[in-house]
Computed example of a mutant assay.
Amino acid sequence: MNKDIATPIRTKEIMNKYGFSFKKSLGQNFLIDPNILHNIVSHAELTKEDGAIEIGPGIGALTEHLARAAKKVTAFEIDQRLLPILADTLSPYDNVKILHSDVLKADVHQVIEEEFQDVKNLMVVANLPYYVTTPIILKLLTEGLPIKGMVVMLQKEVADRIAAKPGTKNYGSLSIAIQYYTEASTVMIVPKTVFIPQPNVDSAVIKLVKRDKPPVDVISEDFFFTVTRASFAQRRKTIINNLTSQLPEGKAKKEAIIAALERAEIDPSRRGESLSIPDFARLANELYQVFH
């Protein structure tokens, strides 16, 4: 068994060997607790028939645990300085491939076709860079990739928003967007003390299991998400005020919007956070007639 990368001593040794310094702009925080990595990977429920996609492998701490659990691991790393380090730290594993690429610009479909022909299930497992957490998750969900789900670490406050239920202060358009595609749950809280450098906030690991089909039928997904975003534009405002101020020509169409709310059986004086995903689906389908 190889010595874990993710210990404080080994991490510092590797960094000193390569003279590596953290780039704040890339949101680099390296995990130095093997138990937490083991836990993250166990939530992904990988077998030796499965593949894993990782984003931002750093010096390979999580990658190593994935390599031990999965048939194949492909990781996207944007920081060129880490490539020689990863080649070194992951040299014991022949089932890992590192792509020097920004996942937000990458053709992930193509990568999956090239790298994961012979796996049963595919999971995304990553300690995501905090500054681009949401765009990465949304890209991977909206592109209709053949993945089973994700187990990702991110800022606790973002995890709270993703897994939030209607009627709570964390519930918003992000909760709806992600729960439309997946069943979301927070599986562990991770204290800031297990990273170097220590971030300013605690982290959480969320598990997203892709749904076979969305929980609601909508005429247009794009318009459904436009309506949910508009409904939360200013949280303290009522849904009618948000919709009239945010939707194109909303003020001119106020009467039609009120009529659509009534057909959807939603009181115009409610706030967005009180509406469930089925409520928003009914509303978006009624409003679609008004705006198209």
Rank of each mutant, 00 (worst) to 15 (best):
M123Q: 11
Q179L: 07
K148Q: 15
K139I: 10
A163E: 12
I176D: 00
A164L: 03
Y130L: 13
L145H: 09
V119I: 13
K139T: 08
G172T: 12
A163R: 08
A163H: 03
L154H: 02
T168I: 03
K156T: 08
R161V: 09
M123R: 06
T142S: 11
L140P: 06
S173W: 07
L140T: 05
M123C: 01
V151G: 12
N127M: 05
P135A: 08
G167F: 14
P146E: 04
I147R: 01
I136H: 02
K156G: 12
L145Q: 04
P166H: 14
V152C: 03
M150T: 06
N170Q: 08
M150K: 02
L145N: 04
V132N: 03
V158R: 04
P129C: 15
N121I: 02
E157M: 07
M153I: 08
P135K: 04
N170P: 00
K169S: 14
K156L: 05
Q155P: 00
L174Y: 03
E143I: 07
D118Q: 10
L138R: 10
G172P: 05
I176A: 02
K156Q: 14
V151P: 04
K169F: 08
M153S: 11
L141P: 12
M150C: 02
N127R: 07
Y130N: 01
K139Q: 09
E157D: 15
I136K: 09
P146S: 13
V125F: 12
K169R: 14
G144M: 11
Y171S: 05
G172C: 01
V119Q: 08
G167N: 09
M153Q: 12
R161Q: 11
G144R: 03
K169D: 09
V119T: 13
I137S: 13
K156N: 12
S173A: 15
T168N: 07
Q179C: 08
Y131R: 15
